[in-house]
Design a protein around this nucleic acid. Structure first.
Length: 594
DNA sequence: ACTGGGACTTGCTCAGAAATTG
DNA sequence: CAATTTCTGAGCAAGTCCCAGT
């Protein structure tokens, strides 16, 4: 713990992230002026996040449009006209008829309960059984509608696009400390049915419509405050520069607060991101000592120290999440390291040719299954046996341990989670990204993706193989075969051309020879590209790369790697990603070391 | 010291855009 | 050019962590 504290105390001094603003779309003189002054400034030390903040407030969901009369609803086979509020909620369900959710008992039960609350007393007395409700006409209607939307003419589509663009220009940006910044989510979430993931006890509940009266606005005192829609009022307007959000409201399912915040490309998010990697980098310096320490702690007299040491070992080795406690019955039953229960692990003193194997099987974040078998050190194994003694399956594995047992524990776990995993992961990448000297660009990118994949696998970022995977794989294979045929044809032609040239030695045959040679080369390149693509896709079948690329890999490593091997940055980051990582692209030189 | 909840990051899903193919 | 496949971003749920109040 002391080691960690000494690590903490060398915190980076109040962030000074240099940021250059290359792009301005704001057509005002002010911004042209700002463009000329390259802006580099100190952040304050008192925890304030900004000095000036001005925005136009959120965009609300469009009001409910009642269904046309031709769309019918039947209860128990009989036609029924619903009141507008009841009808609106009914349409939420009607839209989802094809979704698996609507077959789930909990979903149906929760929906029905909340739906009844919106009914008139007359409706309430009639509609008592969801199974007797017929939403199929509604469902049909919405399908037709979306079909119609797809069939719209180019001009109509263009018009919608322009309208969206206008909304984005008006509400999608704010001014924070002299800069125009993109807002992440300026639209208020529309009403609908809550779609919790996994076995969520609240799935199907009505997510109510948010009104201006629910919204707290946050902006500078001296800014032009956003105007609430005509005839309405904000819940509150405050001026809190210790936080980064522009607006917030309380959601009715869990009672938690939702926010309107800036886009990842914004200064405020970029700085935070940069800080995260800097913390991880600093941890690199003391990680060895920490590892030695927790190994020592496996022998501690105190049970809670031993539990902590084993938990840390898991987090370190397997990149498990910390596992905060959560309220029972409020969310799906998922766990992380510290909240593992006896039922989630199995111990095998011997398994095949390995000793001391621990088998993990539990639902983690988003109810994604974590399944893993790993051999551990004898001492860890013995400790685990000890922790399991006299316990029921539903008891906590680490019963003496609480993520927040002490503030020290907080720090420790925090460090491990954000640092060790991430730090370690970045290391992994470095080693994977090591040598790419004479590979072609596609081959280099393959090796980049492999490094990315290694991280994703460690973090258990799985995905279901895409529905069309097999087919698209086959298509690719066909293409490869075709290319191969093409290649052999081209090679034959080349050979013929060579012979021809040898025989005649004239200019014309020389030219043909050159052309053929080029053709072979080109086809070979194309073939190679396809083969690399096939390998990449095959390896990527069950793994989602996005999250680790966006949140765990220090972008400066990627950028440096690109510079070092002359891989264009566009090959690994798309436009949005380049915006998010602008700070890293600006900062990292080819010799950057994590 | 403890705890509730506020703030912010992470991560999945799906619709629509873009690219590719026939 | 339409049909199909792939990619991208928006949307929002679900985590983590920290701070303020007791």
């Amino acid at each position: 713990v002391m080691m960690l504290m000494s690590c903490t105390s060398t915190m980076i001094s109040p962030v000074t992230l240099r940021r250059r603003y290359h792009v301005f779309s704001f057509p005002s003189l002010v911004y042209i002026l700002l463009l000329l002054i390259r802006w580099e400034e100190e952040r304050s030390t008192d925890g304030s996040k900004w000095r000036f903040l001005e925005h136009k407030g959120p965009v609300f969901a469009p009001p409910y449009e009642p269904l046309p009369d031709k769309v019918k609803f039947y209860y128990d086979g009989k036609l029924m006209k619903l009141s507008a509020p009841a009808e609106e909620v009914a349409t939420f369900f009607g839209k989802m008829l094809d979704h698996e959710y609507t077959t789930k008992d909990i979903f149906r039960k929760n929906f029905f309960k909340d739906w009844r609350k919106e009914m008139t007393s007359e409706e309430k007395s009639k509609i008592t059984d969801l199974n007797k409700c017929n939403f199929s006409d509604m469902n049909e209607y919405f399908k037709t509608q979306s079909e119609a939307r797809k069939q719209m003419s180019k001009q109509e589509k263009q018009k919608i696009k322009e309208e969206n663009e206008r909304l984005l220009q008006e509400y999608g940006f704010c001014i924070m400390d002299n800069h125009k910044e993109r807002i992440g989510n300026f639209r208020i979430e529309p009403p609908g049915l809550f779609r919790g993931r996994g076995d969520h006890p609240k799935m199907g509940m009505l997510k109510r419509r948010i009104r201006p009266e629910d919204i707290i606005i946050n902006c500078s005192k001296d800014s032009k405050h956003p105007k609430p829609p005509q005839g309405t009022k904000w819940k509150e307007v405050r001026h809190d520069n210790k936080v980064t959000w522009l607006a917030s409201w309380t959601e009715n399912i869990q009672g938690s607060i939702k926010y309107i915040m800036l886009n990842p490309s914004s200064r405020i998010k970029g700085e935070k991101d940069w800080q995260k990697y800097e913390t991880a980098r600093r941890l690199k310096k003391c990680v060895d000592r920490i590892r030695n320490q927790y190994r020592e702690d496996w022998k501690s007299k105190e049970m809670r120290i031993r539990q902590r040491a084993v938990a840390l070992y898991f987090i370190d080795k397997l990149a498990l999440r910390a596992g905060n406690e959560k309220e029972e019955g409020e969310t799906a039953d998922t766990v992380g390291c510290c909240s593992l229960r006896v039922e989630h692990i199995k111990l095998y003193p011997k398994m095949d040719d390995q000793e001391y194997v621990v088998e993990f099987d539990f639902l983690g974040k988003d109810s994604i299954r974590y399944y893993n078998k790993i051999p551990v050190e004898k001492r860890v194994f013995k400790n685990l046996q000890l922790f399991l003694e006299n316990k029921q399956p539903e008891d906590d594995l680490f019963d003496r341990l609480n993520v927040r047992m002490t503030s020290m524990m907080d720090k420790l776990v925090t460090y491990f989670h954000i640092s060790v995993t991430k730090n370690y992961l970045s290391h992994l990448v470095v080693s994977f990204l090591g040598d790419a000297a004479d590979d072609s660009i596609p081959a280099k990118i393959l090796s980049y993706n492999r490094a990315n994949r290694a991280v994703a696998i460690l973090c258990n970022h799985q995905r279901a193989p895409p529905k069309t995977f097999e087919k698209s794989m086959q298509n690719l294979q066909t293409k490869i075969d075709e290319k191969q045929n093409q290649l052999s044809t081209a090679k034959k032609q080349l050979k013929a051309a060579k012979a021809d040239h040898k025989a005649s030695h004239d200019e014309k045959s020389k030219k043909t020879l050159e052309v053929k040679r080029k053709a072979v080369q080109r086809i070979e390149e194309q073939l190679m590209k396809l083969q690399v693509q096939a390998t990449d896709r095959e390896e990527n079948k069950q793994i989602a790369l996005g999250t680790s690329k966006l949140n765990y890999l220090d972008p400066r490593i990627s950028v440096a790697w690109c510079k070092k091997w002359s891989v264009p940055i566009e090959k690994i980051y798309n436009k949005t990603q380049r915006e998010k990582f602008a700070w890293a692209i600006d900062m990292a030189e080819k010799d950057y070391e994590f």
